[in-house]
Design a protein around this nucleic acid. Sequence first.
DNA 1: CGTTCTCTTGAGATCCCTCAACACCTGTGG
DNA 2: CCACAGGTGTTGAGGGATCTCAAGAGAACG
Lengths: 236, 236
Amino acid sequence: MPAIAHELPHHAPDITDWFGGGPDERLRLGNTNSITTERTVDAHEHLYLEGQRQTHVYLLLEGVVGRYKLLPDGRRQIVSFSYPGDMIGLDCPERHVDSAEALDRVRVRTIPFNAIDRLMTTEPGFGQALLRVAAAELADSREQMITLGRKSASEKLAGFLVRIANRNASIGEDPDTITLPMKRSEIADFLGLTIETVSRQFTRLRTARIIHLSSSTHVQVLDADRLQAIADGDDA
Amino acid sequence: MPAIAHELPHHAPDITDWFGGGPDERLRLGNTNSITTERTVDAHEHLYLEGQRQTHVYLLLEGVVGRYKLLPDGRRQIVSFSYPGDMIGLDCPERHVDSAEALDRVRVRTIPFNAIDRLMTTEPGFGQALLRVAAAELADSREQMITLGRKSASEKLAGFLVRIANRNASIGEDPDTITLPMKRSEIADFLGLTIETVSRQFTRLRTARIIHLSSSTHVQVLDADRLQAIADGDDA
DNA sequence: CGTTCTCTTGAGATCCCTCAACACCTGTGG
DNA sequence: CCACAGGTGTTGAGGGATCTCAAGAGAACG
């Protein structure tokens, strides 16, 4: 993200400038702080449900949130996993288009939706910041679409692990030590697979000595190059 | 779209208010008209390519545009088909995240990217309008993700036809008379299938007397209810 | 130390893909 | 007018990746 941010033309304010997510907390509006509140959500609780009227937007401060859509018969597609720093629930027009569930204990800053509207008209850079958030999310969705539509099970899981490793690196953590906050069923519903297939792909990576699994949620990447190669489909 | 628009709170200006796409063309900025230009693009030509620096945004006036991403080995995922009234290429940060190709002869209004930036700061409702466009696109992507990840081939194709029928209805045309501007290969790459599977699903709908095919691009819906049922997975 | 949830592994079934042939359409040129 | 070529769509046969169903092993928790 920083790698992208500094490429932007002119002054490119970040969304966290307004809601105090970053270290250089500015809180430009005197009353912004008063209308936003902090909230803790336990694992398996929902921030909102699909179809509900959108009242707040959430800035994720801590924990991981899964956002999903359901089909009438119960089939589920997880459309994204959100991490600290991500904006959640900006689903205009008006009603939420997905449900958001905390995967572990989560801390969010809740922002009333009308405050968004107001900030957009009064604060110069705010609209751009918001649009950049939406565009990043859109780019992410598109990336996931090619994964869902055109990649094999092994490419999907390897790519999934690579993305987490890259995220780790970007926040200064060890890219090869991965702690998965989600269950196999959630990985499956994110990648468009079944639990069994996900489990088999994990086993395949483990027996090929590409990863080590000290527990089902604790992944140690042993051969990042081969993992990347599998993710890219360079796999015989 | 109108069904959604009138639900919106306050005054909800549409993006076409600024670029003269609608009948109540306002052109609020005297010089907006001068910096935007109209352009015609032939079938199979590209508006832009993935990875290119974003210089313009396009308002589609006529024709259909396919937007796609490629994998290194040539596999393709079409992420959306854009119709008149749609905004194309708002892919900040800075570089296009997909390629946009005209499926037939296309007319667009091109808007320099820096004009977007300027309008957002000077025009009160413009940011909201743009954000609404982005949010609608995001909702669309998410819908497509559940299609790609969790639906069967028959559900995918039936759902695809239903969506086109609904679009027809929304612009006042006959929902049951569908002219497909895209080839089988493009439908396949949109739905995450192969051409053969798409073709077989068409045949299946035809032999079940749910549709009639006067040509490969001309679909007559004979039983909209059963088509909808198949799209919803209510299919034994 | 059961109970429950989760994960893994196996065997078989199935949906969709791959490969291949052929039909259709259109335009071109003999 | 026909032959031919190239692009596109359809259909068939067979194979394979993933799903389904089922059982058992691990882990978490009271």
